[in-house]
Amino acid sequence: MQRLRATFAGDLGTALFSTLGLLAVGWVVILAIQSPRSLIATMVIGITDGAIYALIALGYTMVYGIIELINFAHGDVFTLGGFIALPLFAAFGIGPGAHYSLVFIPILLLVFVLVMLINGLVNITIERVAYRPLRGAPRLAPLITAIGMAFILEGTMYLWRGPVNLRFPDLISEARYTNSLIDIGVKDVMVVVVAIFLVVMLSLFINRTKLGKAMRATAQDRDAAQLMGIDINRTISATFFIGAALAGAGGLVYALYFNSIRFDLGFSAGLVAFTAAVLGGIGNIEGAALGGLLIGIIRALVDRYISASWSDVIIFAILIIVLVFRPTGLLGMRVPEK
């Protein structure tokens, strides 16, 4: 029985994955032959969406890596980024109907920094108030609290700005580069550049700094890390801060891209990003980035060539299949099963 189960999860899982992967690749090749231009356009969409999913997924994966909590509220922290940016822009005299102008670039950068900072502080507070008291508690207790926190964040944003889609200033150039094969806009490039920049910074931070080292140590073995003199609370706070800062940047990028944001955006975006983190291997930073990209591309392909009304079904099916057959994801988990 035990062996059967192992086969089920191991070899069978690998076989299933390879088959599904090959089928998907074959399908994409056919699409490429049919119309390379339309496939490229879809890929651009997939990559831009995927970059945003990746920014959210990083927060999920970091928090899970360090305290093994699926931070349900994270999707709403993402939305919060956009919501915080609106009054900030207003404070600089940029109304929701504003348009691209070079003058705004420094303000935009400043707002980026401020949003990341505020969002990070909010998330630290959430951790302090809602998760830290439950750290010794069984793992399902903080999970329920996290769901509650998601509702609180969503409810607060709802109370604050109501149920409507909020208009967001259009501060990025609408210019496009088009030839017979490629059609790409400045906005597309902006999303990808911001995402790559942040992921690289994060990677450097985790691998090169002392705090990053502390985070890795804590993720590996919290008790041992504590014995080595690492301030666990500070390290966990830092993790929440960075996760929220990235998600906030993601929320701002999203809002700048689509010029619109709504209070409940983060719920579905968060679930999709979580799927991305699981697909990449939860707890694994590179995995989250890769998973985000893959999920973005899968979603765009389904939207374009199958139907948008099925894309959620397919994404959640992927989530279930990954968890059942290959809980370690594509790149493997950092956290070993205890």
Partner: peptide
């Protein structure tokens, strides 16, 4: 749950 219509529009 659809928040991005670009793929459809591209179609």
């Amino acid at each position: 749950t659809t928040t991005d219509w670009r793929a459809i529009l591209n179609g």
